[in-house]
Nucleic acid binder design. Structure first.
Lengths: 200, 200, 200, 200
DNA sequence: GGATAACCGAGACGGTACGTCCTGTCTTCGA
DNA sequence: TCGAAGACAGGACGTACCGTCTCGGTTATCC
């Protein structure tokens, strides 16, 4: 029996990805995370809310973790890098702004969910690792400026300083704590002093 | 047994809570977390492995989070507090030992799972918050000793130092990173310097 | 690391199959087939209507075909075997009753669905084959009685007669036809005459 | 809405139906039915195999049933009408040839699928009903010739005889049975005797 | 010979159903 | 009388098809 498979007579591309659908899905994902948290977040729930078919979601995202990360990146805080001429002040303003953003917008809840998912899903874990390094480099810029001003010891590694800053902020988030102004400043003063200190 | 003349048809009161069952359940929970991580952890899986009924688990634990916390407390690391006479060394040894313990025993995976669950479950979140404060006080002891030795500035808050140390360790855990010896020392030297520094 | 798998300390049996659930599921299956036909029949729809969980259905039936067959056997027509002393009359009454039953109760629609499913599913196909043979033997009984009365030629195979009777009835069903009284009698007279005839 | 002044710009025609696509689609449908049966038959599968777009199929066929019927008519058996001068022989040869054709070519599987689909789809059901009547008239021709030869009782309805013949053949098909030579002859002898018999 | 409309393939879309897994509650029975 | 075994309702998982739609690209006419 001959096969009916014809050679592709034409080159064609097919329909394009629907921007409306993508938008509606990410929107719905964000809303669910904001309203019901990670516990209420499911592909089914997102599809229902976005009035999208589940296969549409699975066509563009590999799973829960992938969608979660996209929803986060879509509304992650873009914290302005302060430049007050003083390292302690710069770091305090930066972390204060970040925590305030997490506390008052959905992004805190979403990022918390991303961190939780990263404990399940290796892809999410890697994405979080990459994101942490990216943020570390970002904050290291603040420290480098301080070093250029001569405010920081020459043997201080800006990445190490940034690592401490990030660790503090993330840990506050995952333990659901929102430090007061004084507490915040005390911590970042400690870091800034450590950076400034000459070799022992 | 009964001594009275008129015996009740049956004197027996039934089985008592089985310590063996509790042990098997916690054991199974730990093993699953070690082998398959949080993703493979389910009440069903624990019951299967422990050869216990699901209702037995639900009778003694309120849910996933509760069981998880119990499994953690059962084998949480009891890191000895070092006393080398030098703050930086004390902190480096302490954190190094902690991370090594997390890396080489089930406790790292289990605590990671507890942190993940705390993003969903309010009870777990509160338990984590309490645990964080407990650990903070624990580590603050190291700093207080250094202050008593005059190694630390008088206006340094031992709790703030401890907070930074914990944040660093926990963040390494949740981002699945295991810093090398040099990297670890650089971070803790930074903290120790910040603690020692006189008022700016 | 030691395994936590304990030896089963007790032999126990667990909860028993719920007769209510089974009843509700078969009831729902029958109603759906009656109201919406095979096209509207799905495990999901049955579960919804029976207020049962899908896993409960899959626990006891291997799939659509299996459930369908059970629903059929539950309300299949138990046509009384007539005994009028005349073969043509017996067969006409039997087939007329059967077709009438199929036409006026859900069982016709259900059996039609079973036949359709048997074209997809090998298990259903075998069940249908077995059922056909069973019915053939059943009807052959009518012919044997006629042979004992001397009404039928000695070289007539009762099974062959029964085969023709069944084929006629089933084909009417699958072509959605309901023959009139006269048409029905003409066909069965033909069969009865064939059975009676002496060797040519 | 629009003014009648302005005539339709053009009476355009455009590209015509692609015979190549139609051919490939029917070919693919037949192959799938032959290889995987009705269970593996889906519009998606046909489109994939024929390297055609789904809308192309839906443009020319109303759905699964329609395509199925077309695929059947395309290769339905054209059984030659035998003329041996003996009714029993004619019918045995005819049915034997038909069953052999169904058994050894795709047409059996395809027709089985058509019958299955006719239990779901009203259009298919009607087509099957029409086809059954057409086949009945076709076979009735054999009986009429026998009546003209005086081989058949004058009060025998050729349509009733044909009905029985068809019913037998179709029922064998849908129960996936292939009767042996002896069994086949016994059945058709029964029919032929019934046709010949004088009024009781 | 250029415009134009219907065709074509490819494939995304909102949906429904599939069959599996897990949750937390319940029922049964054995010790 | 408690614990094991496991059934239960429910709901999410990720996949396959349904039938419709929107793309570009092609082709055959008509002006």
């Amino acid at each position: 029996m001959s096969s009916s498979q014809r050679k592709p007579a034409r080159r064609s591309t097919g329909a394009r990805r629907s921007a409306e659908a993508e938008e509606a899905i990410l929107q719905a994902a964000g809303e669910i995370l904001q309203e019901a948290g990670y516990a209420g977040f499911s592909i089914e729930a997102v599809a229902r809310r976005a009035k999208a078919g589940k296969p549409t979601i699975y066509r563009w995202w590999r799973g829960k973790a992938d969608l979660l990360l996209d929803a986060y990146h879509r509304q992650k805080p873009e914290i302005p890098v302060p430049d007050t001429g003083n390292l302690e002040e710069d770091l305090t303003v930066f972390v204060g702004t970040l925590l305030e953003h997490w506390r008052t917008t959905p992004s805190g809840n979403i990022f918390r969910s991303v961190l939780a998912e990263a404990q399940n899903d290796e892809a999410a874990a890697e994405a979080v690792r990459d994101y942490a390094l990216d943020r570390r480099d970002h904050i290291a810029g603040i420290v480098k400026r301080a070093r250029d001003r001569g405010e920081v010891a020459s043997d201080t590694d800006p990445h190490a300083v940034a690592e401490l800053v990030i660790s503090f902020a993330w840990t506050q988030l995952i333990t659901h704590r929102w430090p007061g102004e004084a507490e915040l400043r005390a911590i970042l003063r400690l870091i800034a002093r450590g950076a400034k200190a000459e070799r022992a």
